[in-house]
Each structure stands twice: as C-alpha cells, then as structure tokens.
Design a protein around this nucleic acid. Sequence first.
DNA 1: TTACATCTGAGTATTGCTACTCATTTGGCT
DNA 2: AGCCAAATGAGTAGCAATACTCAGATGTAA
Lengths: 209, 209
Amino acid sequence: MKSEKTNVLIADDHPIFRRGLFEIIEESEGFHVIAEADDGETALCALRDVRPDIAVLDIAMPNMGGLDVLVKTGHWGEKPIFVLLTMYDDEIYLRKALEFGALGYLLKDNAESELIACQNDVLAGKHYISPGVSRTLAESSGTSADLLEKLTPTERKIFLLIADYKNNNEIAELLGISIRTVQNHRFNICQKLNLRGHNALIRLATQHC
Amino acid sequence: MKSEKTNVLIADDHPIFRRGLFEIIEESEGFHVIAEADDGETALCALRDVRPDIAVLDIAMPNMGGLDVLVKTGHWGEKPIFVLLTMYDDEIYLRKALEFGALGYLLKDNAESELIACQNDVLAGKHYISPGVSRTLAESSGTSADLLEKLTPTERKIFLLIADYKNNNEIAELLGISIRTVQNHRFNICQKLNLRGHNALIRLATQHC
DNA sequence: TTACATCTGAGTATTGCTACTCATTTGGCT
DNA sequence: AGCCAAATGAGTAGCAATACTCAGATGTAA
C-alpha cells in the first residue's frame, strides 16, 4: 500500500528532542516521518536519497547547521519544503532562513500544536513563522534592511555567510560556485559599501547582523 | 491497582523535548511519568504534592532553574532523587549539581538509552554522569567563563583588541611593540584556545566580548 | 642559583583576503 | 533584436594572517 501521507525528514542532534518531534508528527493526520538525522551532513545525504516533501531542520547542529543544509540545496533542481527550528528568536537567523528560501521558522519552545500548523501552512505554500519571532522582524525591518538593499540577491547571501564567519572557500562550497566568483562578489560588496581592509567587511557583517 | 513502577517527575520548558522525555520514560520498564512541569516553580510545587521517586530537571528554565529547585529542597526531610539535564557541558553546573546532592547529570544531546541507564543507576544510589561531561571535567577545558584565565595579561590585551576588529598592525602600534610579537601572541592564543583558520580567533573574540 | 613563565622579536613558508581588470553567459526589458 | 543588470569565472598582484621554530631578556618563585 502506498502512503498518501506527506513525507517528513527531521534533523536534530538531540535524540530526546528528535523523539518528541517524531511522536508529534507521527500522531498527526497526514504526516509521516520518513527519515531522521542527527547532524547536517547526514540530513543532506538523506535529502538526496529519500527526497522528503518537508525537511524540518534544527539550526544548531554539529558538522553542518540547518541553515547550511538549506544553502547547500539552493542549486538543486527539486527541493523539499524547509522548516527551520531554532532555540532563540534571533532575527538574523530568520532573515537568513527566509533569504535562502525556507517557508517555516519555528521556535523550539513553542507548543506542539505549532509544528503541525506550520507543516500544514508550508505544504500549502504559505510562510509560517512562530508568533514570538515575527514581532521581532516587523520591528527591525527598517534598520538593518537598508544596507542589504544595495546588494543583489547573491551578494546578500554571501554577505550573510560572511557574517557567519565563513571564509571564501566555505562560501563557495555552500553555494556550489567557484571561489573566484565568491572573491568577485566580495570585492563588489566592498565597492558598494565603500569598505577597505581585511577586517572591514567581516566587521560590518557581524556587527550588522 | 497500585503502580509498582518508579514515579518520575519531568520538568522542561520545551514542550517537544518534554514530549520526548515522556515517551522514552513511559516506554521503559519500571518507570512512569507521574507529573510534568514547564518551569521551576511548577516543578517545586509538583515535588511537594506528588512526591515522585525521581525528579528529572532541566537546568535552564524560566522562573526557576533546575539547580535552584535542587537547592530549595535541600532541607526537606524526604527528597526525590535528582537528575539534572543540561544543554551545554559546562563543568561549573556539574560541580554545583553534585555539590547540592544530585545523583544524575545528563547532557541533553546524549542518547535516549542514557536516560534509562541513568535512572536505573541513581535508583540504586549510584552517580550517573554523561560520558561527555566527565571528560570535560578532567580536561577542565575552558568554557566562556574562564576562557580569558588561560591567557597571560598581554595575551588578554591582544585578545580584547582583536575583539575590537583591530589588525596586527594597529595592535602593535597601540601596544608599542613589534608586529612580530603580536603575531606570536596571536599564535600562542590560538594554541591555547585550540583555534585554527583565519576567522577562528576573531570569531571567538567578537562573540565572547 | 635553578627553574619557570612571560614578553619580546626574528626566520620562513603557506594560506587567504583584497584589489583590480576582463570575458562570457543568462534572463529580463524595450 | 538590442540593451542591461546580474552571475559566473579567470589572470595577476600585493598584503595580511596563520603556522610553525628558535632565541634572548626579564622577573619571580622554589
């Protein structure tokens, strides 16, 4: 018998928390946990292999974080719907998640019911963001967004990765492009933002985000 | 019919994680979740009321942390056996937990099987400490609290200047020493803190300060 | 005095970021 | 079709940080 349920991959490095996720999803109508992962790399492999409909990823995991997994699938032809899980309502994570195409963004301390509501929404193509977070974003959308508006989409992505202390090599690998291209984007960003020197860009990026 | 199972109270502010705890304990032989709490105060009240055999407490909870709950029961005549849960393997928490009479100390990212093993051990009066923690305790490797204590005075100064996004040239000029000396200090700092790569030091410094 | 930690500085090599210029391709707009 | 922004990538330089090893000066505690 074929399953008509929506297949979900869950990735979290805490087994007990993952168990909680599993139970909540399994007992819901219409969703089924098809794969589990305890770190980013395993999650990425599983995404390739089992092709779930939805990927529920913890942001803070060993080896590779949920955001990195999200970024790495950026150039895939067919991607799952992404729901990011985070411990803290840090707006920069939300910004990054949305920038890289995630539809769901959930706080880990939210109620169980949120998870299912979120999955239903993202499955319908809608964004779902935990109530506690959206407030933060709405308040701050005027300030830190200005700088990023000067940049093109790809430049924005790279800027955010720089803010994450990634080096050119890591950025290139994450985006699936050449390191030379990253260098060029970096140069262009510095031009646009009128920056010079080794620490100037990383300083602005980390302090800004 | 009276339950012959060991009664357990679980306290954690994350519903999904608590759900995971619940499932693992309930499916085990000999243990039964008799009460749940989502913060310290609720846990303390529940301890008074239902008198569980074992209390599994998260350290980081709103209102009152697990350690505070542990301390507050210190003068009780009859106390449950305490198992503390923590997210990070911070040795100071372990010290405190043991100091105040906890028998179990578990990392949240440990395997599900650990929880049951721990409960069996503490029920027999033995200590159970997550493997990952005891290692940390033995090595006494630095957490953010005593990170700077490993460094010499000059290294600390340089570390703070790095956190200020200063480059070697600027640091050398500010301190009135050679760039080479600054480079050496930087190298030694990286050695002590076990860092490698271009961004590792500036990352730690800026995030720490 | 010996021993040790700390501070200071240099030698040498490698890696990584910056600073440009130039070329190709792609997709959207007129 | 022609134009243009955006993305991608290479060539070439130069500069800064990292990754070591080695060594002299200083002060301090055993």
